[in-house]
Nucleic acid binder design. Sequence first.
DNA 1: TTCATACATTGATGGCGGTCAATATTCGGG
DNA 2: CCCGAATATTGACCGCCATCAATGTATGAA
Lengths: 116, 116
Amino acid sequence: MKTLPVLDPITDEACCTPAGQPALGAEEAKQKALVFKALADPNRLRLLSIVKAESSGESCVCDLTDPLDLGQPTVSHHLKILVDAGLLHREKRGTWAYYSLVPGALDSVAGLLATL
Amino acid sequence: MKTLPVLDPITDEACCTPAGQPALGAEEAKQKALVFKALADPNRLRLLSIVKAESSGESCVCDLTDPLDLGQPTVSHHLKILVDAGLLHREKRGTWAYYSLVPGALDSVAGLLATL
DNA sequence: TTCATACATTGATGGCGGTCAATATTCGGG
DNA sequence: CCCGAATATTGACCGCCATCAATGTATGAA
C-alpha cells in the first residue's frame, strides 16, 4: 500500500500550469480524478462538512460516527481516503485521532477545475 | 431512466445557502456527490478538457473518440453522464452531436466546494 | 501488568460503474 | 425509398468500492 500525495501541498502562486490549451494528458487526468473520487461519496462530503463546521476546527472519530449512520471502521476508512487525497489532516493525541481541514485544500480543488 | 437535474442552472448570486454551519444533510450530500462522481473519472476530465480547449467551444463525438483510447459507445456514455450532471450541453445538428461546456458550470462546482 | 477505550486494519460480501460488442435510431444523400 | 454515416442504447462482463464483522494496535488508567 502506498499513500500517494495527490493534492500538492499548495502550489505557490499561480505559476505551474503548463499551458492550459493542449488538454489534459492521461496521467494528469488520472491524478486529478483521484481528488474528485475522494469527493464523490455523500458520506465523505458530510465528513468534510462536519469537520469544517466544527468551531474548534477539528473532530475526533467518535464525534463523526454518530451523525452519519455508519460503523466506526467505515468512518475510519473514509477519513483515510480524505487524508490520502490531501483534504484532511490527521493528528493523534493520546488515544484520540483529530481530523482537520488542510488549509487551502478546497481552494486547490477549485483550482483544479479552473485548469481543466 | 431519469435524467436528474443535479447542478442548478445557475443559482442567482450568493443567496441560497441555508446557513453553512449545520453541516450537510444526507440528501444534499447525495446530490452534490453526483456532480463530483461525474468528475471522478480520468476520461471524463479529459473530455471536459478537450471540449473546453476547442476554439469553437464545441466538439462532436467523432473528434472525441480518437484522443481518448475508447470506443464510440463508451465516449457517448461518458458524455451522457457529463450532460446529466449539468456540466456539458448537447446540441444535435444533422447527424452530428455537438457538445459544449455549460457556461458557469465549473464555477458552480467550485461554489459547491465553498458551501460544504 | 492487566484492562478498557479509541482507532486502524483485514477479509468477505454485495452492488455500482467503466468498458466493449452488438444493435437500434436518426439523419442526409442519391 | 434505400443506403451509409454518426450517434445512442442495450446487454454482458469484470473490477473497484462502500460497508460490516472480526481482529489488531496503541494509549492511558488502575
